[in-house]
Design a protein around this nucleic acid. Structure first.
Lengths: 231, 231
DNA sequence: CGGAGGCTTCGGCGAAGGCCGAAGCATCGC
DNA sequence: GCGATGCTTCGGCCTTCGCCGAAGCCTCCG
């Protein structure tokens, strides 16, 4: 089969530990330099350079140069979805060895970005709240925003129709959380909600990582609007 | 990061050409024996056996023994979704070499099963028809069945609520077709529609492959119900 | 019970590819 | 122009892993 070779190439690109680490770091949608990526992957810059070149020709990563810096980011949302789906399978696989959970991992588990939306304990709690209040409905494969949910987002000043061609009902997408093993909110709705949390100052990135911290203002609003207790 | 190793392992399992071929063959949801899989991958049975053992401990494939046969199938729908998403990225990657399209490939492009639903020209045409008639709505990430669509499926005797816990609105899922590069219908609805096409005798598998042929009865019904001309 | 068929394990070969040190290009700032 | 910085290319070492032939295990069937 012709397409088989391309399939194996893409999968094996993601299958190297060093490259996997870089892709993981790029999953929050930001663009990083080769040296930064080398550090997160635990390899030297020259090795990272080689990996990034392969990822670029493989169509997983896009690069743009700015002065003497070269910024790398995921090539498309489809790549992010692919990485998510691999993480789902990887999380479902029986833990072969009691994984050591460090402080850095704890922060990630509490709250993090997942390409363009929120994941971790916070992400799952938000999704739970929306479901419990009948504002969204999630199945294993897909989800919708109810009228009540649309009203909520409207009240928050979140415009769901921006990129969605004015569908009669807002569509969203569930994304299985690898740390919580329960679905959180992705897709157009998840992205819009995440952006709103940042612009409203409810959350902010910790250092330069995917982990996010909940601000005091965020604590208040998450409690009032979504009934989420102190994280 | 702890989960990184598991991620890379899963991806690299899918990243070997021989294993990719086997996974590809398993994507129609059926269970195959090691020897059959060895043939489709173009390797000897003993090599296939090693690959299958690794895929099994990696959680991608499940095995059950029946007498002296051992049937292998994808471990979960999540694995199938992962493979689909990798195919999407692989299809989007620029064709590095004019892929040779054989007759076998042509049959696959015309109509095939994709885990539990229909893909290829037929799958895309069905989705197009349902969209054009306002029976479903598809965005990039998710989709819904309209009241009109629910009525159609009801008329066909397709029970969408079987496994879906009676959601107020039926949910479905788009799946980007690697050959047509346009979405077709997956998820609960796609699966139910595909099963119906088989049980109603509209389509049947070609040999033992994922490719399907449209029967005369199918021709008639696809034309009358969905307005799809002769394939 | 003995042969046949399906499948796995073992051992060894060979190619692929990850890794780094050193050196070579670009770009920025002084 | 000159050094510093970010990044890439080159060369060589080394591990990993895919592959098959041969042999062994299990299950069915006559």
């Amino acid at each position: 089969m012709a397409s088989n070779a391309a399939f194996a190439e893409v999968a094996s690109l993601a299958g190297d530990p060093a490259r996997a680490g870089m892709l993981h770091a790029l999953m929050d949608g930001r663009a990083l330099t080769a040296t930064e990526l080398a550090r997160v992957a635990g390899i030297t810059p020259q090795t990272a350079s080689g990996h990034l070149a392969r990822l670029t020709v493989g169509g997983l990563v896009a690069m743009e140069k700015q002065g003497r810096h070269r910024y790398h980011r995921l090539a498309s949302p489809a790549v992010a979805r692919m990485l998510e789906s691999i993480m789902q399978v990887a999380a479902a696989t029986p833990p072969r060895k009691k994984a050591f959970v460090g402080p850095r991992d704890l922060a990630l588990r509490a709250a993090r970005t997942c390409y363009d939306h929120l994941a971790g304990h916070l992400g799952v709690a938000l999704a739970d709240s929306l479901i419990a209040n009948g504002q969204i409905e999630l199945a294993a494969d897909a989800g919708i925003v109810t009228d009540s949910g649309a009203a909520l987002f409207d009240r928050l000043g979140i415009d769901l129709d921006a990129g969605s061609k004015r569908k009669s009902r807002m569509l969203c997408r569930p994304c299985l959380d690898w740390s919580e093993r329960r679905p959180h909110l992705a897709g157009i709705v998840g992205g819009a909600l995440c952006r709103h949390c940042f612009t409203a100052g409810w959350i902010k990135h910790i250092d330069g990582t995917r982990a996010v911290a909940i601000t005091a203002k965020g604590q208040r609003n998450f409690g009032e609007i979504f009934g989420i207790g102190s994280a």
